[in-house]
Amino acid sequence: MSTTTVETDLVTAVARPARPTPAPIPMSRIVSVELRKSFDTRSGFWLLASVGILAVLTTAAVILFAPDDQITYDTFGAAIGIPMAVILPVIAILSITSEWSQRTGLTSFTLVPHRGRIIRAKLAVALGVGVASMLLAFGIGALGNLLGAAIVGVDPVWDITGGDFAGLILFQILNMLIGFMLGVLFRNSAGAIVGYFVYGFVLGTITQVLASTQDWFERAQPWVDFNYTQGALTDATSMTGENWLQLAVTGFFWLALPLAIGLVAVFRSEVK
């Protein structure tokens, strides 16, 4: 008898007063957490810093090595685009895959038990970082153009229109989205990075060779080769309506579809 009484007393004594239900976590906070997570490791920090560093190095290389008559903004823009096409997708890839490769997902997906929200926040951060990086890189390129023109002793040539500029940024954003898609699909850092180089460089070279040797492929290429249609963006102002349609069609099959498949896998998979 006495034990029963003690137990009941104990249970009522320890029951905490009911707490108010906490407010939901706002999306803006998840985005700022994801932004922080892309800076707060040594590797993440240097990856972002390398955007600026590589922009400065390529700009310096153009000033040093480009022939005098090619010291124009277009040359700088084209040169800077090359390292960006490597570094930005890697940033996008790691933001996704580190949750699995480093197993931080155990905490992230428990504190925010809606994987879609975290993925969307990561996408927002990736796009933000991508656009900011391109603006920074073009800014550095512009300074290089001024400096280069002063050294050569000519008036600086600004031969990138607003349309070209938007096209170049879109080109890099698509590269980032490809990285993002591969990250979601593979959920493994090494796999996704290797995948990106195969996708962008190996596949791109193969289709180039194929197009120059096989007539039928050259005709089909604009409708099946995403690398090719994406390349048109580097000269965006001369793109026709058909070119845009080709970009959309190839982008659907090479980007949107695999991204959708990867997302389904992310939502269903076990995090462990």
Binding site: P24, Q102, T107
Partner: peptide
């Protein structure tokens, strides 16, 4: 709505960056 304020979870202490 905000699981961390209601449930403390430790599944694997080594699962950190």
């Amino acid at each position: 709505p905000n699981p961390g304020l209601e449930v403390g979870v430790l599944l694997d202490a080594s699962a950190q960056h």
